[in-house]
Amino acid sequence: MTETHADYQLSQLDQLEAESIHIFREVAAEFEKPVLMFSGGKDSIVMLRLAEKAFYPAKIPFSILQVDTGLDFPEVMETRDRWVERLGINLVVASIDDAIKNGIIPDAAKISRNRLQIPTLLNAIEENGFTAAFGGGRRDEEKARAKERVYSHRDEFGQWDPKNQRPELWSLYNGRLHEGEHMRIFPISNWTELDVWDYIGREQIEIPSIYFSHQRRVFERDGMLMTETPLNPCREGEVVSERTVRFRTCGDITLTGCVESTASTIDEIIDEVAIARVTERGATRGDDKFSEAAMEDRKKEGYF
């Protein structure tokens, strides 16, 4: 019997999956109380799938945490509930409204809810005693993320210090913490947007319907198409019209724009992503547009 090395090749998607599963198991083994930060977007759904695979046939041995901004797309919440039900995992919801009510964060109507997510999240991590929080961040998303470690250390204030990161070698992750500190874990660091879509297609997993082409009443703001909703009233001169659109990311309904698209299947989305000329964040996320260093600033404060 002759076997050649060619028989033992793993595709790039299988290699990425193997690396992510390794990270999930490492964290579950070494941290007292991990949690998976779930936004409802495609990246956090891919994380759930990977976690499911890492521990099967056992259940995922940690909870999932969602920051409820009060501005989430209803379709995203529906998908979340179906995943939670199927996997039988515990869902912890940290609500911005509750945090305001309880005086944890100031009620600043003018501050973007995106900003208020940070203290709400940090408070939830502290209150529940979570020592490691999985996030769906990818290094290809944004320049500031290109240098983020898989294990990203946060001090007792939840802050990230980009100039003082621990070296990360081979697949040997260092999870040491002091009292009050926690670790952000990015198991899909090495995935690109296209990898995520390829994987969703391959695994045939459910994602929120807003990723697929649909009819929506929208208006144009800052070069983006925004959803018509009482949560985000039109300003003078903004005209609402019905268009055929889809979303490339899932965020705050008042900040997340959509793109005109007829892509209604995963394959059509993959084709669209493959020829896209603008990054998913650059195209449709108002929160990243404020300054060139916008993401870096929010990350230092403890953003996802």
Binding site: R25, E26, A29, F55, Y56, P57, A58
Partner: peptide
């Protein structure tokens, strides 16, 4: 060996 998988469920 990274992690011991024990489902502790009726099915497994």
């Amino acid at each position: 060996v990274q992690y011991v998988v024990r489902p502790k469920s009726d099915e497994f």
